[in-house]
Design a binder for these strands. Sequence first.
DNA 1: AGACTTTTTTCGAGCCTCGAAAAAAAGAAT
DNA 2: ATTCTTTTTTTCGAGGCTCGAAAAAAGTCT
Lengths: 413, 413
Amino acid sequence: MTVGIRHDDLRRRNRAMVILAVRHAGQASRTEIAATTALSHSTISAISSDLIGEGVLAEVKGGEGGAMKRGRPQVAISLNPSAASVCVVVLSLNSLIATVVDYAGCSVAEESLRLPTLSMPRDELIGQTVGTVVRLIEKHSAKAGPVMRIILAIQGITDSESRTLMWSPITPESDICFADLLEQATGIPATVENDCNMIALALRSHDPERYRNDFIAILLSHGIGMGMVLRGEVFTGTQSSGGEFGHMIHRPDGALCRCGRRGCVEAYAGNYAILRNAEGLAEDTPPVADVGDGDIAALADKARRSPGPEREAFRKAGEALGFSLGSLFALLDPAPVAMVGHGSLAFDLLEGPIREAIAKTAGGQHSKAISFATEPNEIPLIREGCAIRALTFLDEHVFAAGMVNLGARKNAG
Amino acid sequence: MTVGIRHDDLRRRNRAMVILAVRHAGQASRTEIAATTALSHSTISAISSDLIGEGVLAEVKGGEGGAMKRGRPQVAISLNPSAASVCVVVLSLNSLIATVVDYAGCSVAEESLRLPTLSMPRDELIGQTVGTVVRLIEKHSAKAGPVMRIILAIQGITDSESRTLMWSPITPESDICFADLLEQATGIPATVENDCNMIALALRSHDPERYRNDFIAILLSHGIGMGMVLRGEVFTGTQSSGGEFGHMIHRPDGALCRCGRRGCVEAYAGNYAILRNAEGLAEDTPPVADVGDGDIAALADKARRSPGPEREAFRKAGEALGFSLGSLFALLDPAPVAMVGHGSLAFDLLEGPIREAIAKTAGGQHSKAISFATEPNEIPLIREGCAIRALTFLDEHVFAAGMVNLGARKNAG
DNA sequence: AGACTTTTTTCGAGCCTCGAAAAAAAGAAT
DNA sequence: ATTCTTTTTTTCGAGGCTCGAAAAAAGTCT
């Protein structure tokens, strides 16, 4: 913050800008890059020819015969897919999916596994995860650029350094430093990220018009997760991954939550809570371990057909979400909201109660401005967000610095 | 974000770094500046002699005969007090205080006024405010550097551009664009800021050890305000000044709040709410307009002496604060908290219930890590925060750019 | 084929920061 | 008093970076 800018930082930052401009655009001519970065054509020319020389970027050969304008045609520049690759690991309830993604963002290899995460002993969970990654990387080391980064996304709380899984609902084990474990096994830098934060990244890259600098993504599932972008950055807490929207207090000393506390939003809006209410059980009935997506779909169908305890259960869930969103908005102001995950398929049942509750809050002043979108399938979003995170890291911290000699591996795409 | 760094930005930024380093340190030698900015001695030498030549900084002549070490003595550089000045206006309930502060941060002139803000018509409130500022600036135009910025702090909600007072509890009027009004009357750029945000800035400059990059300040008064620093920046909402902690929902459909809604934190912890509960009135009793500080002090005394409705009222206030802090911390993680304002004199009555409630929340996981401090007198903090805000703006946007020719006005301090 | 248009590269100028060396300004030693 | 030592500050040349203008390149249009 009080640190000055050195002369050599300049080039590094501008190189990063060029790479990021190309990544965002998919492909872009030098002129377009100059426009988006506000740098001069000469600078862009110098930087891009450096980056092409280093094998980070590549000129697109087969000019897409699109409507030819007059004048010298622009030559598009794209990311060189074989400049590097990253390994994305999504660990969720009973499932492990590992993917190798090339530098341009395309999946080139995948390995998936079903495994009983809730009942596995610690060593086996670790062993399976690390083993799958090692196998995948070995198998595909030839196909794409070298894997330069591993990123693991998981439901739960990670430390603020993105190295340790502090707590997760998918396993009774806690404080697993997956980053260290993966790095030791592979020699490749690794990080651990919260799944909802990755969802937020993916949403932004999907629809930058809607999800720009400030928005939130809420994962409706067995529990309630949240990823939040503030001021253009994924927000993480100072101690942990933060964003524990599901454990804001909806009703002090209220319904029993999976976390052992009372009155959390999740204790009204999580799958287990909806089920508990629909079955007319007391609020302090211990949460069941897991509720299938099918069960919730069935409840939602019942609720749509006729009034009754099912509809009331969804109403309570919406009310909890609405009041808590209202509190969040009072603190941080309105922003677009994405409802993600299987639970969002019942959003038609939730929206009314949500809007009703939010209108009763200070955050609801602008309630017309609050718009919701739904994204039922979270897994692809998580994977995509991870890829963006890891690749952007390479852009900014590896290739922008120009420390890597890519040698002969040029323009294999 | 995607914008590259131009060559001329470099100097501007590094100049800003030097100025800020001097402002933070009060006074510093070139060597010390080089150390804190991580720039080379040659660069610092060049920049600082420029800035001294421009009259922004000044060498301190009377070397303070402190323990003389061996070697060439360091020559301290400080801000030149007469480089510029700013006008700070604090508008609060029934009171208006305007101050001219020199570039080094010292008050050089002040004018204060009592006025019935709650009952004044719009034009008179505006007239008095603008008039006081104009008078003060005219009267003291000779004494210090020219007033280059006006900053007005007020309880309430401002727009995100810091130009308009959208709503305030101190007046029934709303949507007053003080920035335009002040600029038209004086020709000097003006901004409008939320009082609690300014408090946060002042706290950081007072105790940078404790209040560093992430903390919150809660103003306990007739209403409940909050200023929050996240990632080293004062956090403001995307639409408004944000940080409406007092209007997070503590109990859905609960006690009647001054804002007309139900169940807000303020409806339990604001002065009027404590009074209402202490008097055993129903929760939907309309809030009284204003409660004197003395009344609350008397209630607190009673509560300290013996159990009864007064103590219970403070307990409810603490409970509301605790649960809501817990929710806030669940979202944004623990951080030091400052309880500011007259209400913090009763913090001894609040702390127990606050900690009890917070321990029941997810944000309270680290509840031992949550530390509270109290600052009973908010007005000086507001003033100081404003001065810092306005002066820092000059540092970064006026003097760093070197656009101002200070001419003969050199080193008058 | 030549004119025109647009993109890209080249080239020199002007800044900026840096490291090393020199100069300056004291106290300490003789 | 004069000469070392030590530390701070300035000076100076080297190396980079970005920029604007001009030149070169690579097409379409007539």
